[in-house]
Design a protein around this nucleic acid. Structure first.
Lengths: 244, 244
DNA sequence: CGTGCACTTGAAGTACATCAACTAGGGTGG
DNA sequence: CCACCCTAGTTGATGTACTTCAAGTGCACG
């Protein structure tokens, strides 16, 4: 096959990814059954679709979302390189959440059948998997806390700095700026706001000199001031992360 | 020691808990290092506390919460018998979330050191653990979806029916009623509403003939109608659940 | 029979939604 | 090169769901 091997996976170079043993690496390599490229705006997973395989996002941005009865969309999670895709669907047979790409994406497909051997043969990976899920949960907890009560500009500011930090960890930032492909609509669905109010809040952050979002580029003018404004606390990074 | 053994754990009788192999059961039994009783209103875990052990809630109600900078409380999760407590803290060394009891509770304490052997020795339990966490995440996803946009009465109705369903699964309901210890303040913190508006929404649900909350007792007058009103979908129950 | 607490009810303020008009890039065809 | 449109975003006016504050009710406790 012609895709990049796990040994040379670009994500492995990053500080916070698991340093695997040789045996684990071989296992993960064997797990990798395919590499898929999709354009921006593609449905990676349809809501409710039954999937029997797991993916990691090798490159690009994606959103995990759910649809309400009335057809509106709620963005549950912003997926960046290294994020696991499809675990919800794998565990619940069919989860109601879907995944859509924001940019062209590259997916690393892990064969679902062999995947279950992970628990039997590589307990350390299983532990890493749980650590990774719990980190997602922590992020979700913070979001839930912010969404209650706090004004829109603060929530938006928090989303900005949280995303920026994740990108910095991935080495995807340039100085105080980074690429940021979410549109007003995406932000509105993520924060549970209307598109117009996201606009106003973005303007407010800009006028306060905290952050500027313009033409798919996000600039954080002062990390400290924005973190202060948004009540953002730098998370403790410890424990290994999952896979690749 | 004088506490109830896992073989006789009252939770094991329930349909949806894992049916363990003999070896697994012995392992879990050995894991159990203590049984603790706490009164209502006790801090089971202080926010930020470093814990080195895991618990399951054997009996009683509790809330997992987080404090905002400004000292307000956000309820993240309602914990019922069978819920795992302390995994966040164990994984992040110290998580910012705390746990408080609503009723007298009984905790089954699982030794943290030996706990890590779970991954090495009992992969099926590890898989069950992940399934259990993913079920929590699914519940959190639904909550996040509802909290965006939908009016207060619907969100409250959803919380009611969701709790009722979980209790029914545990055999803790009597007909269309159940014990329900959350106060207005707790509900407000769980839904991100003010206490007074929770009151109004509860009145609305009562006047619509959907549900009545009175003196720590919740009555669902029509499961179907309330589920319809609140957009509640009965979750698919499959996969085994974790421990005990 | 008061005192305190959980809850209800009411009136006024606010942050947000909704709808609509307007502005600014960014392609496309002529 | 410009006229054209199309979409993404901004700005403004009005409505509403919620908050906040404050007074009032019912019930448990000494």
């Amino acid at each position: 096959m012609s895709f990049v091997s796990c040994e040379n996976c670009p994500l492995r170079a990053l500080e916070h990814f698991a340093d695997l043993t040789r045996a684990e690496l071989e296992f993960v390599s064997a797990l990798k059954s395919d590499e898929i490229n999709l354009p921006a705006g593609a449905q990676v997973i349809e809501p409710g679709q039954v999937v029997d395989h797991l993916c990691t996002l090798l490159a690009g941005w994606a959103l995990r979302y759910r649809l309400t009865e009335s057809g509106e969309r709620k963005v549950l999670e912003i997926l960046l390189p290294g994020s696991l895709i499809g675990l919800q669907n794998l565990m619940h047979r069919a989860s109601e959440s879907g995944v859509v790409s924001l940019t062209p994406v590259t997916l690393c497909v892990l064969g679902g059948a062999r995947f279950s051997r992970l628990f039997e043969d590589h307990p350390a990976l299983a532990r890493g998997l749980i650590a990774s899920i719990m980190e997602d949960q922590r992020r979700a907890d913070v979001k839930a806390m912010l969404n209650a009560k706090l004004p829109a500009a603060i929530r938006l500011g928090h989303l900005f700095i949280d995303s920026f930090d994740r990108l910095a960890e991935l080495g995807r930032t340039q100085g105080d700026s980074c690429y940021f492909p979410l549109q007003r609509r995406d932000l509105a669905d993520a924060l549970g706001l209307s598109e117009t109010h996201v606009s106003r809040s973005a303007t407010e952050l800009h006028e306060r000199g905290l952050a500027t979002l313009k033409a798919n580029s996000l600039t954080i003018h002062s990390q400290r001031e924005l973190a202060d404004f948004a009540g953002y606390r730098v998370p403790r990074r410890d424990g290994r992360r999952f896979l690749l």
